[in-house]
Amino acid sequence: MKLVKNIAIALTLGTVALTGANAADAGKHPLQIDWSFSGPLGKFDQASAQRGWQVYKQVCSSCHGLKYFRFRNLADIGYGEDMIKAFAAEYEVPGDVDDFGDPTVRPAEPKDAFPSPFPNENAARASNGGALPPDLSLINKARHDGANYVYSLLVGYDDAPADFELGAGMNYNPYFKGSQIAMAEPLFEGAVDYEDGTPATQEQMAKDVVQFLMYVAEPSLEKRHQMGIKVLIFLALLTILLYISMKVIWKPVKEGKNFYDE
């Protein structure tokens, strides 16, 4: 019996000791940021998300699509109908075929998805040295620790260490898997001119665009958080009530009463 116990302990300790072994090429652990949307009561920071929309529009959107995002969704980060229409109208999307059967384009409307910067994957690769810029609609959910990861990646560009062999056309970024990434450093101080006057530092822009992308990846987050509190409170009260009810009902059983002995 003791032997079994000892084997158990030895095995458990042994396996635990080995846990840290395989984190070699997975990329540096992301910086941990205190986001407004994390935690049970987390909400989107609308001002930040609006700035993030500006960063996405002016910087990211030249290479990265946002195909699950509709212009009408901008209402959720605080834009009015007229603003949304104006944003949409800046872009063109395919329209109906005309009377001669030829394809047409029309200005985008709130119902439309954000148009992809490239017509197809091959075109995207051709314009980006063979690399495919991923669609960003779900990027914050499609990576481990997504929000922190995207932020770290955006601010994590650095000079490659002397002993690091950087591929042609690649950039050193320790947060990316394998530490080299085809995307050149996208955010430079002052890359956008914030409408609200916030200084456009690299960290600020990265934070804002992550805030915006979090909204795009998980539009239901605020609703989910708010409903969750109500559901949990309800369930807690119900459970307490059921517990009391159970104790009352079970009292005669605990007292040893025989229910079939009439």
Binding site: L232, A236, T239, L242, S245, M246
Partner: peptide, 12 residues
Amino acid sequence: VKDAFGAGVFFF
């Protein structure tokens, strides 16, 4: 009632 109470905890 015991199952209902258990369900309350589990659903929480």
